[in-house]
């Protein structure tokens, strides 16, 4: 029991921090542009593939550094030459643009790397057991992922609250016109935020790729969960995105580990009246739980846990 709780908590935190690495960028982009970027999870996928390609040719560590920068550059170009042009046709056009972009990126990945998962592996330098609790071991690579995610989080908070650029971003979120009239180039700040958001998603992909599966559908698998996170947290709220990321990370990880069904709780006879429903375990409904949470939040608290605007 103790090991289940320990490992599920660790894995849940790790999954939550990975979600936050993407949700933070998505939230900042949404606050600035008022548009959900449907292609955000695609940047995560690009990060994993770029990381794989570089690690295959040069090594894991160069990929770890270069791949997020490349993804950030792709993001900045998408904003500068795509979204900014589409912007004048309104939010629906922007939404459709990012929606289409997600498919384009997935097809491009299909073309270059094929439909099958690629062999993106944990580097030998991190391929060992970090610690052992009872009979279960915990891989060092997972500790490394957690470390990177926490460092990224600290860096993001420091930049946003301490640096001048961070303050300009904060001000531009709510008062873009006034910020421009003080002499700051707001469109360039938008491009920067979009690029950094994409780079963060790319970094998440680079480190998650070897631990999970690097395949063309990884964006489509993760994207919906990401939207659950930012809606549950409250659209536009960075703190909300953080809380919701951890919440969903923990809930999903624990749910998978719990093999309890209704029959176990109320007894087999009472549960029998429910038919098959009585024998479904929590682990079996784990994938649905985030979406249930989404529906409940939308019904009972439409602005999200910490949001200020209606969704």
């Amino acid at each position: 029991m103790l090991e289940l709780i320990t490992f599920s908590t660790l894995n849940g935190l790790l999954y939550g921090m990975l979600l936050f690495m993407m949700a933070s960028g998505l939230t900042l982009i949404f606050s600035m542009m008022g548009v959900l970027n449907f292609a955000h999870a695609s940047f995560y996928m690009l990060g994993a593939y770029f990381g794989f390609e570089i690690s295959r040719r040069i090594g894991f560590w160069p990929g770890f550094v270069v791949a997020p920068l490349l993804v950030g550059a792709v993001g900045a170009l998408v904003e500068r030459y795509g979204l900014r042009r589409v912007h004048r046709y309104g939010h629906v056009a922007e939404l459709l643009f990012t929606f289409g972009l997600a498919f384009v990126l997935e097809e491009l990945v299909n073309m270059f790397w094929g439909k099958l998962p690629v062999d993106y592996r944990v580097p030998p330098s991190l391929d060992f057991v970090a610690f052992r609790l009872f009979d279960t071991t915990y891989p060092a690579y997972r500790m490394f992922m957690l470390l990177v995610a926490v460092a990224m989080f600290a860096f993001l908070i420091a930049v946003l609250t301490r640096s001048r650029v961070g303050l300009i971003i904060q001000a531009a979120l709510t008062h873009p016109d006034m910020v421009a009239m003080l002499g700051h180039n707001v469109p360039r700040i938008f491009m920067l935020v979009f690029g950094v958001g994409a780079a963060l998603a790319g970094l998440a992909g680079v480190i998650a790729g070897p631990a999970l599966v690097t395949q063309p559908s990884m964006a489509a698998l993760l994207g919906p969960i990401l939207f659950v996170v930012i809606v549950v947290g409250g659209l536009g709220s960075l703190a909300g995105a953080f809380v919701a990321s951890l919440l969903i990370g923990l809930v999903q990880t624990f749910a998978v580990a719990i093999n309890v069904s209704l029959a176990d709780v109320v007894g087999a006879e009472a549960a029998a009246r429910l038919g098959d429903l009585g024998t479904v375990t929590v682990a079996q409904i784990a994938p649905v739980i985030p979406y249930l949470l989404l529906v409940l939040v939308l019904i009972f608290r439409p602005k999200g846990l910490m949001g200020t605007r209606e969704t």
């Binding site: 303050l167 300009i168 904060q170 709510t174 008062h175 002499g183």
Partner: peptide
């Protein structure tokens, strides 16, 4: 004014 920023931070954003 930028409401969530402090007085001093508001002044800083006035600088180019």
């Amino acid at each position: 004014v930028f409401p969530s920023l402090t007085v001093e931070q508001n002044l800083l954003l006035g600088c180019k």
